[in-house]
Every structure is written in C-alpha cells, then in structure tokens.
Design a protein around this nucleic acid. Structure first.
Lengths: 211, 211
DNA sequence: AGCAGAACATACTCGCGGGTATGTCGTCAA
DNA sequence: TTGACGACATACCCGCGAGTATGTTCTGCT
C-alpha cells in the first residue's frame, strides 16, 4: 500500500517521491499539464513509468502535489513578513513583493507551475479526493492573496495608499509579479536582486496617492 | 484548393472561416491549446470536424490565426494612442493601459488566447509555414511591448517617471494588465470601466518617482 | 538463511483525438 | 440541365499517452 498524496508522510523513505515530484515540476513548468506526458517525466528521471506510478496513482495527483507544495512554500515565506506590524505597511508590501518576485525567479520549477496552475481542468470529472486537494489549493491561494490585501488595507488606513478595494488592489500586484515567470529565464548575467527591487518599488508606488 | 491561413483573403466568402475562428478562440480560451480537441470546437459550432478541416489544415493553424488576429487588433488600438505626441507621457500611458485592460475584459475570447499563447510548444516540430506565423506573432508582441517601452522612455525624459530600463519597465505593466484574464470573468454587475481606470492609475503611479 | 516488502522495470491494454478519404447536398454559371 | 465547385457530413485510420498487470531485484529484518 502506497499513499496517494505525499503530503502526509515525511522522512527519508519519501526521498524517492520528492525526486519524482521535482522532476514533474520541471516538466510541468515547461510544457503545462496536458502537454506533459508521464513518460516525459520518467525520461527526466532517467527511468520508466513504473517508478512514477509506484508513488502516485495518477498524473493529476502529481500535479496537485506540486501545486500544494509550492503554495505551502509561499505561505511560509509571507507569514513572517505580514506579522512584522512594527514595519509601516509600505515597507511590508515592499518586502512581500520582493520575496514573491525572488521566488518566481529562483524556485522556478515549482512556483511557476503553481502560477500557471490555471490548467485545473482536471477538476471536472476528477474524483472526490482530487477535488478536495484542488479546493485546498484554491483556498491557500486565497489566503495568500489575503495577506497582500490586508497589507494594502493597513496602508490605506495609514494614509500611505490610495483608497482602493484591498482585494481588487491585490490583483495587479500579484499580476505584475506572477507575470515574471512568463518572460524570465535564468541566465548567468541576469540580476535577480535588481529586478526584484525594481518590481517591488513598482507595485508599492502603484498604490501611492497620485501626486 | 483552400487557403491554409485566413489572413490573406477577406470578403463574404470568408464568413464561414471567421465563425470557425471565433468558436475556436472561445474553446482555446477556456481549455488552452493542447486540452482543446477539434471535436470540441466542432461541438461549439454545432457541426462536425469536416467543417473545420474544410477551412484549416491543422489545429495549430487555427491557433496561430487566433493569435495573429488578436495581436493585430491590439496593435491597431495602441497606434493612435502612441501617436498622440501632444499628450504628456503619463497621460498616454494611462490611455494605453486603460485600453489594454478594457480589451482584456471585453474581447475576452481572442485576446485571452493571445495572452495565454505561451502554449506555443507547437513550435518545435512544426512546419516552416507555422514557424513563420509563430515568429510573426512574437514579432508583433515585441512591437506592441515596444510601444509601452517608448512611452515609458518619454516619461523618464520628461522627469515624470523614475529612471528605469524602458523594456524592463514594460514587463510589470503588461503583467498587471494581462493577469486580468486569469481572474476576471464577465458578470452582470462587474464594472469594467472602474477596473480599467483603477489599473491604469496603478501602472502609471508605479513608474512615478518615489515621493 | 530466508522471507517480506519496497522499489522499480517490462509489457501490455485501450480510448481519445488529430488527421484523411470520401460521400452528399446545394448553388451558380454557361 | 448539367456540371463544377464550394460547403459541409460520415466513416475511417492510427499513433500517442494514461493507466494496469506482472515481473524482477534489492534491502532490511528476524
């Protein structure tokens, strides 16, 4: 008996599963969900399907695990930033945006899949288990977005930002940042720090009152 | 003999082709390229495959036509805005962003496909014709982006914007705007005008000097 | 030593979907 | 009026890819 989702068990015995997961994330990132075949993932692993289906029951299960892990990673990163209530809201938003942009450029594989996760058309005739996993992912996305919305609301109250609907204001912020994975490709010379800084400044200024 | 690309001929005889094109755009928008079957498109048309393959030689050809038409539409819309040299750069950027946001929310089908056009993995082992069409699309995307970059450069020279690399600055702008089609869904009550105005203000302010 | 189970590989099945080959119906020009 | 051609529908082929069934090897435990 093998668990169908890797998120329950940890420990050294699950190292094999993580290898599969990372390989899958890489291919999903490049070709998307439907265009990726299980054989493609196996090829990256230098093995065959058997290895993959030993750990996962279906292609959709792998995808859902990639999505979930990526969102868990983002949530763990934004929480400490959001909790720094001593920092003014604009500085907090700057830090959050900078973090998000950096993750987009570094944790390329997993995070990119999470963004491109629009391809959840596996939702339709999926099983109950998968629907729940997908709903959990959507809930996490909402929670993550809410962190940004809360910071925006704080900034508006403090008079630092324009008076906008916080939830709506979070859209162009995350849009500008998520879009990074549509054009950014890792290169020797590409200065991740500078890009992250510039983009963070952009979204913070975007909310400031029009001079 | 039937032409393989609809962009050469016009006139009433091509009405049938346009029907196919619009239906395809709708389905491509919802499910993406690979997840869309030709039978799906036919079902939307209330007909069968035969009708589609009467006008197009392959699924990729349809997709490329959708992409091309969407980009032609955007280019036609931004040119008159970019040419208004009497307007200050920030007002021009505001108008351009507002236009783009509005198109994202109204011309949903075609434009959304164009944005999501990342799925050009049909490029790989595609024929020479398709590679040229795809390259043409990429060139148009670049040209479109360049309009924004030029406006940004003008604004920087005028002291209205921060001193940023124009080409890089165009990325978060178009990211914030393109991202709209990831979350916006047409609704009776959704106020397109307000959203477009708010997003345009956001991207313009994003470039202003930090007060 | 020997056995149980994990960790894979091999070899299949089988349906979906892109593309083709061919038929049928209407229309319009000569 | 007929015949040529456009505008489809029908019926088919065929490969790819998800999933399965069944090995085989290795490893740890007793």
């Amino acid at each position: 008996m093998v668990m169908q989702s890797g998120l329950g068990r940890r420990g050294p015995a699950e190292a094999g599963r993580m290898e599969v997961l990372n390989a899958a994330a890489t291919v999903f990132m490049e070709r998307g969900f439907t265009a990726t075949s299980v054989d493609d993932i196996a090829e990256v692993l230098g093995s065959t399907k058997g290895r993959i289906y030993h750990y996962y029951r279906s292609k959709a299960d792998i995808f859902l695990d990639v999505l979930t892990l990526a969102m868990l990673d983002l949530l763990e990163r934004i929480r400490p930033i959001a909790e720094q209530r001593d920092l003014p809201p604009d500085a907090r938003l700057h830090a959050a945006a900078r973090m998000h942009a950096t993750v987009m450029m570094t944790q390329s594989a997993r995070s990119r899949v999470a963004v491109q996760g629009t391809e959840m058309h596996l939702m339709q005739e999926a099983g109950a288990k998968q629907r729940r996993a997908l709903q959990a992912f959507v809930d996490m996305r909402d929670e993550y977005e809410q962190y940004f919305a809360d910071i925006v609301a704080d900034g508006t109250r403090a008079g630092l930002f324009r008076d906008v609907a916080p939830r709506l204001a979070a859209k162009p912020i995350l849009g500008a940042l998520n879009w990074i994975n549509m054009w950014y490709r890792p290169r020797p010379g590409s200065d991740i720090e500078n890009i992250a800084e510039e983009f963070a400044t952009f979204v913070v200024n975007g909310l400031r009152p029009t001079g």
